[in-house]
Design a protein around this nucleic acid. Structure first.
Length: 611
RNA sequence: GCGGGCGUAGCUCAGCUGGUUAGAGCGCCUGCCUGUCACGCAGGAGGUCGCGGGUUCAAGUCCCGUCGCUCGCGCCA
């Protein structure tokens, strides 16, 4: 007989009754009835009930074992008597009478309960992650993650993609985030960067003629965390040669569609998978106030600046901003005449919390518009609003007024907030049970950076500008579109990608517009430029955030639920103690000296602020 | 860097307008119990109410500061 087990804990059935078996696992629960002791023995497959009788010499020994101790038992499988069968357990028709016991590992008193569903705080869970991970829900999510990645791999292989590994110690890449740096011992004063994405490597693989690349790629970015953002994460990264944007969509849409359909019902709630037509970036910003709109929200935004420009409209708060170049964006919200005043007041308070003066609205109920700003908008102007926004009796329209970028963004947030505040069952409440996908296309190549007062790349500087060199040489670079796209699902940006710029002369011009000289370009991306001078195929690709996909399919609001080991919100690992202080010898080897921020100064600053 | 929320037993949390000895469930310890499966019953241990200061006759509760966690903004595909 095997040293530890003949069966797993979810395996035994009536058929094995009478057999002598060996099981190993954790004591999930103990139920001590004095004369008879039940033990739920657990491994990752499930649970088997084991029994010790009063007359057994093992009773005292096994009573000593706390839950979560690891034991190996040898015993006889018996069919349970009628009335004692547990239908909730796969092994519920049998139980194992323990004849022999080996305690493999005694468990101390636990800092968090494994068997109980009640969740401990995240700091405790992360510190004792090995215990947290024992819980059923964590096992299931980690298994889901594994299955999703397996499915992605298979689907990529099936389409002729080759899987690669690319360097982790590399040079800074052109994304805008801060790099994690690793000091070089052999090259005093120099640092490697951890990849924000294998962007240049995958492009170089295209230049090398591999045609179809993919990787489950680790990526690192040194920016502050969020519930859906971590310092290190994984992407389904892909790139292919001789393709247009449509080819990338045609390749990846079925992969993602397939993965989502395969796991759509994992939570137990069935979900549909829907793909909406591609949407231009500018339309997304105008109509939804976001480049990753949640299309389960049926509310839409429109521009009503012209209405507030009218002479008969006397709402000066907006007029002043419009004169300075601002815009008025409006959200039509159908059938809210029945909502109490507090519905509107709460939204107004919310807007103030967002830094806006408020959230003005007009409610159309009966002949005339109602609400705090209705009196500034005469009937004729109200009629125009109705026409533009398609308002019907019983609808309300909410207004946001600011400079274009800010107005769009706030309107986008208001659109989501209003949707969330609608009572359940309302026709415009957020749709449930559906994954709504969309490719957002035609991102602008450049944006004007207010702070530095100059033009900069708005996304990936390696994207091919639409219209090529000719477009770049046109009068307004800010109007140039990049061949750049995102894949969006339920308000999450799942992927980003582009058709790349493989022509050195276009690249030089593209970087020149953003203020990078030829020298800088040559110095930073010389390897890649070189590559494009020796015969590069047109190519493009994208990268899907795997963690976000798992998070959405697991219906978890937090990325940390879908990783086995993970850092907290401040990017510390309470279990491993990372990050750590280096030893003096380590610093010496790396030719480094640590200069800590001056605490005294920051205390003074705070004192000044509070004064 | 900024803003919101939270911080009370090992864990999850209650504790009202300040008022006697700070509570519950789970866990832990002891005892009882032959059929439970979140077993049950009886008893017990366990608290710097995050920390520091202030107001008050009196602070878990109010005020100020500070630290930690968390969510968000900035930042970031």
């Amino acid at each position: 007989m095997h040293a530890y087990r003949t069966h797993k804990c979810a395996e035994l059935r009536k058929d094995q009754a009478g057999q002598t078996v060996k099981l190993s696992g954790w004591i999930h629960r103990k139920r001590d009835h004095g004369g008879v002791l039940f033990i739920d023995l657990r491994d990752t497959t499930g649970i088997t009930q084991c029994v010790v009788d009063q007359d057994s010499p093992l009773l005292t020994e096994i009573e000593k074992c706390r839950v979560e101790s690891v034991i190996t038992i040898t015993g006889r499988v018996k069919t349970r008597q009628e009335g004692t069968v547990n239908r909730d357990l796969a092994t519920g028709e049998i139980e194992v009478y323990i004849d022999d016991l080996t305690i493999q590992s005694q468990a101390d008193v636990l800092p968090l309960q494994v068997a109980d569903a009640d969740a401990a705080g995240e700091d405790v869970r992360l510190k004792y992650r090995f215990l947290d991970l024992r819980r059923d829900a964590m096992h299931n999510r980690i298994r889901l993650r594994n299955n999703i990645i397996r499915s992605m791999r298979q689907r990529m292989w099936d389409q002729g993609f080759q899987e690669f590994n690319t360097p982790i110690l590399t040079a800074s890449s052109p994304e805008g985030a801060r790099d994690y740096l690793v000091p070089s011992r052999l090259h005093p004063g120099k640092f490697y960067a951890l990849p924000q994405a294998p962007q240049q490597f995958k492009q170089l693989l295209m230049v090398s003629g591999f045609d179809r690349y993919f990787q489950i790629a680790p990526c690192f970015r040194d920016e502050d965390g969020r519930a859906d953002r971590l310092a290190e994460f994984y992407q389904l990264d892909m790139e292919m040669s001789f393709v247009k944007q449509e080819d990338i969509f045609a390749t990846m849409t079925p992969v993602i569609d397939g993965v989502f359909k395969e796991f759509a019902d994992w939570t137990g709630t069935p979900h549909r998978v829907e793909w909406l037509p591609n949407m231009a970036y500018n339309d997304a910003i105008l109509k939804y106030g976001s480049d990753k709109p949640d299309m389960r929200n049926p509310l839409a935004i429109c521009d009503v600046t012209d209405v507030f420009k009218r002479e008969d409209v006397t709402f000066n708060a907006f007029k002043g901003i419009i004169e300075k170049g601002g815009v008025v964006r409006a959200i039509r919200c159908p059938q809210v005449a029945g909502q109490p005043r507090s519905f509107f007041d709460k939204l107004n308070d919310w807007a103030r919390g967002e830094g806006a003066p408020g959230l003005g609205y007009i409610l159309f109920e009966g002949a005339e518009g109602k609400g705090p700003i209705a009196k500034f908008v005469p009937t004729a102007a109200q009629e125009e609003l109705k026409k533009i926004a398609g308002l019907k009796d019983g609808d309300a329209i909410f207004f946001v007024c600011d400079m274009e970028g800010k107005a769009a963004k706030l309107a986008g947030r208001a659109r989501d907030k209003i949707c969330d505040d609608l009572p359940t069952g309302h026709a415009c409440a957020r749709e449930k049970g559906v994954y709504k996908f969309m490719w957002i296309v035609d991102f602008p190549m450049y944006e004007f950076d207010e702070k530095s007062g100059k033009i900069d790349f708005s996304h990936n500087p390696f994207s091919m500008p639409q219209g090529g060199l000719e477009a770049l040489n046109g009068p307004d670079p800010l109007k140039v579109m990049a061949t750049q796209y995102d894949c969006v699902c339920n308000g999450f940006e799942l992927a980003s990608g582009g058709i790349r710029n493989h022509k050195p002369e276009i690249m030089e011009r593209a970087f020149a517009i953003a203020g990078y000289s030829r020298d800088v370009l040559e110095k930073k991306f010389g390897g890649m430029l070189d590559a494009f001078r020796f015969g590069a195929p047109p190519h493009g690709g994208c990268a899907f955030g795997i963690d976000r996909i798992v998070m959405i399919l697991a219906n978890e609001p937090n990325l940390r639920e879908v990783y086995a080991f993970v850092m907290n919100g401040a990017y510390e690992d309470p279990m491993m103690g990372a990050p750590t202080d280096p030893t003096p010898q380590q610093l010496k080897d790396l030719h480094l000296k640590v200069v800590l921020p001056a605490k005294v100064e920051s205390v003074e600053k705070k004192a000044q602020k509070s004064a």
